[in-house]
Design a protein around this nucleic acid. Sequence first.
DNA 1: TAAATCTTTGACATTTTTGTGACAAATTAA
DNA 2: TTAATTTGTCACAAAAATGTCAAAGATTTA
Lengths: 226, 226
Amino acid sequence: MRSILIIEDDPAILKGLKESLEQENYHVLTARDGLKGFEMAKRENIDIIILDLMLPGKNGQEICRDLRSTGVSAPILMLTSKKHEMDKVLGLELGADDYVTKPFGLRELHARIKALLRRKADLPKDIDQYSFGSIHIDFKKREAIKRKKPLKLSLREYEVLKYLIQHEGEIVTRTMLLDEVWGYDVFPTTRTVDNYILSLRKKLEDNPAEPCHILTIHTAGYRFVK
Amino acid sequence: MRSILIIEDDPAILKGLKESLEQENYHVLTARDGLKGFEMAKRENIDIIILDLMLPGKNGQEICRDLRSTGVSAPILMLTSKKHEMDKVLGLELGADDYVTKPFGLRELHARIKALLRRKADLPKDIDQYSFGSIHIDFKKREAIKRKKPLKLSLREYEVLKYLIQHEGEIVTRTMLLDEVWGYDVFPTTRTVDNYILSLRKKLEDNPAEPCHILTIHTAGYRFVK
DNA sequence: TAAATCTTTGACATTTTTGTGACAAATTAA
DNA sequence: TTAATTTGTCACAAAAATGTCAAAGATTTA
């Protein structure tokens, strides 16, 4: 089930939205002010955020910008009151993905939510370049550079690294890697994964014995941090 | 840096777009009406044009058509308002390359701009002369020279080399070569490709055993670098 | 027509990649 | 603390991909 976070101070609108969306079978979380909403968006795993532009405490624009800079990538649907045409543009500038102006119809809202979810699903963030520490990687060209010097990585190494980076900050289990990188039809040992981690660390980390990008999460898996 | 020309009459949208795109490190030129925009597009060296369909003076469709007939080949991204579904199609027919409907999310817009730039870059430039290392090649006359001395290359060798050079820096797979150079109607082995690489290396590389122009990308293909 | 050249293939050598097990080190749980 | 589990590390072997050569067809040239 998809999770929607609504950040809205008007209790009447909030209630109406919540009920309507729950009827559409979404899991709905709510926050009455900007700060709470911001915290929830960071903490919970949200698929889409509905955000009122005018809020007490921390307004929609600020939240929008802060969420983006914190790395929250869930699409944001902005609610604006009709009078402030300008705010539309401002809101969009700050990283919102779409907006509706009050008063809005629920059917329109549902349509936009669906569109945003679809759009997100369509775009599995495909990175073809990435930099961290003294490393620069071009996944498309299969080139890796560390301090101006070329690095040789095998195909699997590129794939494992890419998967880790795509899930930056998240825990990646060995099973996830085996399933997604190796595929569902082959069954190497989980030790195989460890060995790829080992060699990636040797090549990428300044001090492979004390890695600072590819971290071990004991009893769970690994995590990439920038 | 890439140049973007925005032709849009609504000052709020124009301002928002300009600032957002400048933040993304594009060089942004703007025009408030169709005629000015048309003149700028002809005069300046533009990488991509963002064009509002509804404009005072000269509308988007006319500009689109006029630009194309004047020989301006920069990709055009059309902005349309939701009400005119039909206009979309018309706009595309007139030579636009993509469109977004207002209201649009800036992230979507950025993605589409990137896609258009990438698509443009995809079209391989036709080269008829090229130099690298101690080699000079004239594809048109079918002549190759290495250190003042003529080199003999067969037709296929020229074609394979040309394809590699046209995709300089990128990975070229054996399948790509077979499809594009040999054609879709014949089916030689992928080993055939390797043999052409071999003979090209022998003729072009100073040390064929350690090639520095035609590189092997293991499990993927080959890559030409200058 | 024969000779020369070009194209393609297969065989074998070499290199690179990949996966595994053994053992050491680290971490967790009792 | 110790025992059990998990992870780090290394060396090695199997598998896969590529390099290389020679030779057989195909095509063009003389």
